[in-house]
């Protein structure tokens, strides 16, 4: 079993814990945002296009 002390020692990274963990956290946060942003954008683009097509159809009918 891994003891509490061992986990704390691992997290401390020999005194550099704050630097190491913040680096990894910022990197992964940016990478996740990099995916979420275009996925959200895709939904918005589809919504806008649908509205545009519906408007065009209405104009075409009258």
């Amino acid at each position: 079993m891994i003891s509490y002390d061992e986990i704390m020692e691992f997290m401390a990274m020999g005194g550099y814990g704050a630097y190491v963990w913040s680096s990894f956290a910022i990197s992964f946060a940016l990478m996740i945002w990099g995916i979420i942003s275009p996925v959200r954008n895709l939904k918005k683009i589809k919504k806008d296009l649908l509205k545009k097509y519906q408007r065009q159809e209405l104009l075409g009918k009258t």
């Binding site: 990274m13 020999g14 550099y16 680096s23």
Partner: peptide, 24 residues
């Protein structure tokens, strides 16, 4: 990066930042 790689003899554990810094 976090477990099997040994700590650097000069920089200690701070060198582990290399694993995101250099690929990026």
């Amino acid at each position: 990066a976090l477990i099997t790689a040994p700590a650097d003899y000069q920089q200690g554990n701070s060198f582990r930042i290399i694993y995101v810094h250099v690929p990026a």
